[in-house]
């Protein structure tokens, strides 16, 4: 089975001399839910821009379901749907016309385009706004409109560039459910996001890009197994006046009611709780200091920075 997306040795040097990509290669298998992560300016948007035909590559090739984007452009693009980071629809067009027009660009007959537009607008809760000019929509509605527009030709590969940026938690959760639903139905999804909990929750595989290079390309599970410690925050009672001594667990005394404890991989929490009990400390609540993937991500980007010295 051919990969949904195959990026081979992609390089991009912009006209101003900035080298955005230095030989990026990624394979995304069919049916995958794939995260492309990286700090700002790492090359994520350039990579996705090349895949979307909005940026010309300097070198390298892109294949979508085995069709070369340069030589079999029409066949390759038919399988691709793109949800960009910025709102990019005509603000004066109605919601319905935006979808129907987009379907027309893919050669979908008007009757079928009308059916699909209605289906996806209903699916994304925008049907009652169908005659509204898109500029009048709220931020969350605009995000959903971009997803509906990208799906109207029913692509097999959907690229989402920070789809939940700036949307509230409730809407984000409902978008996650929707994306999981279409992924389960067979659509391969590539996601970029700065919310790493989003990537951890949704994605099976991940590539981390930094300074134009792929620094990691593996499954989320394998990536998280590389994490050698986790940091927990404990809310405690009664209030302590000084830092308690706990063997084997490096800790930081935040204040009388809060302890921050580093727990090594495989070390477990039982020993810690036993010592808390001996010291008469009651744990009222506990949480991760940060998302596990976030810790992994930061450590990778930092080590890449040290290695390259850039």
């Amino acid at each position: 089975m051919k990969p949904a997306l195959s990026i081979n040795n992609l390089e991009k040097i912009y006209d101003n001399g900035f080298v955005a990509l230095k030989g990026v290669s990624i394979n995304v298998e069919q049916g995958d839910f794939f995260a492309l992560l990286g700090p700002n300016g790492a090359g994520k948007s350039t990579t996705l821009g090349i895949v979307s035909s909005l940026v010309n590559p300097t070198r390298g090739s892109v294949e979508i379901f085995g069709f070369d984007l340069a030589t079999q452009m029409t066949k390759a693009k038919k399988h691709l749907g793109v949800v960009p980071q910025e709102f990019n629809f005509n603000g004066f067009e109605t919601v319905y016309n935006i979808l129907k027009t987009q379907a027309g660009f893919y050669g979908i007959a008007p009757d079928l385009a009308a059916q699909r537009s209605e289906f996806y607008l209903k699916k994304l809760g925008l049907w009652d706004k169908k005659d509204t000019a898109s500029r009048m929509l709220s931020g969350g509605m605009k995000r959903r409109l971009m997803i509906a527009r990208a799906l109207v030709h029913e692509p097999k590969l959907l690229i989402l560039d920070e789809p939940t940026a700036g949307v509230d938690i409730e809407l984000r959760r409902s978008m996650w459910e929707f994306l999981q639903e279409i992924n389960a139905a067979g659509t391969t999804i590539i996601l970029t996001t700065h919310y790493l909990e989003e990537a951890e929750y949704l994605c099976k595989n991940v590539a981390i890009i930094d300074q134009g290079r792929i620094v990691q390309n593996t499954s989320i599970k394998a990536l998280l197994q590389q994490l050698d410690s986790e940091t927990f925050i404990f809310d405690i009672t009664p209030s302590l006046s000084s830092q308690p001594i706990i063997d084997g667990y490096p800790l930081t005394f935040e204040d009388g009611h809060t302890l921050v404890v580093e727990v090594k991989k495989g070390q477990g929490l039982n020993g810690l709780f036993r010592q808390f009990e001996t010291l008469g400390i009651t744990v009222t609540s506990m949480r991760n200091k940060s998302n596990r993937l976030e810790e992994m991500f930061i450590s990778m980007v930092e080590s890449n920075l040290e290695r390259t010295g850039e």
Binding site: S52, S53, L54, K78, L80, P84, N88, T101, Q102, R149
Partner: peptide, 9 residues
């Protein structure tokens, strides 16, 4: 919104 056309086939 020119991108709507550029990403299409």
């Amino acid at each position: 919104n020119v991108e709507e056309m550029l990403v299409s086939p």
